[in-house]
Design a protein around this nucleic acid. Sequence first.
DNA 1: ACGAAATGTCTAA
DNA 2: TAGACCTTTCGTT
Length: 274
Amino acid sequence: MPEGHVIHRLTARLLADFGGYSLEVLSPQGRFADSAELLSGLQITGSSSWGKHIFIKFGEEPDELARWLHVHLGLYGKWRFYPLDVFGNPPAPKGEIRLRLVGREEVADLSGPTRCAVVSYDEVLDVLKRLGPDPLVNHPADRAEFIRLVRARKRAIGELVMDQSVVAGPGNIYRAECLFRVGISPFRKGSNISEKRLGLLWDDLRAGLLDGLETGFISTMLEEDLRAEDPEDVEAQRFYVYHRTGRPCLRCGSMVAEQLMQNRRLFWCPGCQR
DNA sequence: ACGAAATGTCTAA
DNA sequence: TAGACCTTTCGTT
């Protein structure tokens, strides 16, 4: 259940912990068995991520000739890591494990991904072509490109922030929290929002994702607001509006509202986001 | 035990 | 827009 920050983190970890030596690749559940065989015995020699997509390079050939593992976790997918025991044996798989990487000191188990496939470099490029700028990558022209893409569309900004061809990486939590922090109503049409405010939104998405990348979890709340909340309620300490339906906004006191947008729960403050 | 929800995306109608 | 899909976890009976 990850947004972009978790994906970039995982990508780095997979290369750091499992790269540079021959790996055993298994599919305890069986659904990935044929593909696992294509990879088993090879080394991980590179990794990259964009938005919520992970690409792991297997083999020492140049990029164009290597085999690439493409993973997208979707809503439920998860990587779990377990240490080998004192004899160097991996633990028995727990649950439905689509893919297992057996490393020197630990195993990486993948469950529930929406995509897990061995692909060519061309297929990697095809995926990248469909994705908009990633605030964690933040190439020099990306900020302006994000502004241009949003302003070219008439759909609501709440939908556009979740559209991976407009901006790759943010999900439902960053959508709610960043729109709140920048004070933009999720219902505003992209084409009606000024370049300046969209620039601030990009900056805030980047700041949020960067913070999540460092800490490993999403906490969008500023220090001075943290103290105001009930210390028992961990979720409320992290978020201004996400999952806070019917409770008072910490900034203005209005009730946080909720409705479905594109089949996902959208949270916003009607007072702060006009 | 069972049902709902979860930080997502695709496809068909 | 609705449904399908992949799986785990948490709350309610």
